[in-house]
């Protein structure tokens, strides 16, 4: 018996049937990761721009730390967020442990550094082009942040999608914080983890293929939309 070919068949079958249970799991995966990406971008994009445009003592150290945080181990983040959200922890009263809200929080911690570090580079490159003109028009670097984020929007989607990719593929943090509760906090990745531990490798693999298909579709759609807009804009 070939597990991989079996998995392919099974994944096709899943995508054809769209079983409500599977849809719910996909829905939660997308909801958690998209929310985390939105929040992570709201924090990370201005943070990256700020680091690109300002000079202050300790800035180089900040950048090193930020770049290192792109590789934060999800399990460690999961554990830290678990302890923070635990009833005995500082934010225990929120009651977010073993809920999607807690999972979003863990993923925000994971992806904000990615969005910030990548957008810092993008904004720094754009600033080289724009600096004289913007200063001539009377902008200070701080006031230029919004302008550069808006004008760099096509390039910055790369940073946002890198964050999304990390979030949607990640299992270590959300399985600890979410608890992989059936019908409530089970996502694509935690379901894959569960099916692997149940030894149902074909089902796990099939879920993996479905996850990959979703990730590819979303990225392809966003890239196509971005490229079309970019061409129109001549950017």
């Amino acid at each position: 018996m070939n597990t991989i070919s079996e998995a392919f068949l099974l994944s096709l079958q899943m995508m054809a049937q769209l079983d409500p249970e599977l849809l719910r799991i996909i829905g939660l995966s997308l909801r958690v990761s998209l929310t985390a990406v939105i929040i992570g971008s709201i924090i990370g994009l201005p943070l990256g721009a700020l680091l690109a445009l300002t000079r202050f003592p300790g800035r180089d150290a900040c950048i090193v730390v930020l770049n290192a945080c792109m590789g934060l181990p999800p399990v460690v983040v999961g554990l830290v967020v678990y302890l923070i959200l635990s009833r005995s922890g500082p934010l225990g009263t929120l009651g977010w442990l073993f809920t999607p809200a807690g999972m979003v929080m863990a993923q925000v911690v994971l992806i904000t550094p990615i969005v910030a570090a990548l957008s810092r580079q993008t904004v720094a490159d754009l600033w080289v082009e724009y600096e004289e003109q913007l200063r001539s028009l009377g902008l200070t670097p701080m006031k230029a942040i919004a302008t550069l984020l808006w004008d760099g929007r096509y390039s910055l989607t790369t940073a946002v999608f890198a964050g999304f990719g990390r979030a949607i593929a990640e299992v270590g943090a959300i399985i600890i914080v979410g608890g992989n509760i059936n019908g409530f906090t089970r996502t694509m990745t935690t379901a894959i983890s569960l099916e692997t531990s149940r030894g149902d490798l074909a089902l796990a693999m099939a879920l993996g293929i479905v996850l990959l298909a979703i990730a590819i579709s979303i990225n392809a759609a966003a890239t196509a939309a971005g490229n079309a807009a970019r061409r129109r804009q001549g950017a």
Binding site: L34, P100, A101, A225
Partner: peptide, 24 residues
């Protein structure tokens, strides 16, 4: 993509997020 499209996209996301029956 202009600002209006982006707002539309954001609204779409918000809508997707609000439909969380299990949370209720």
């Amino acid at each position: 993509m202009n600002r209006r499209h982006l707002l539309g996209l954001a609204a779409g996301f918000a809508l997707a997020l609000s439909s969380t029956p299990t949370l209720a």
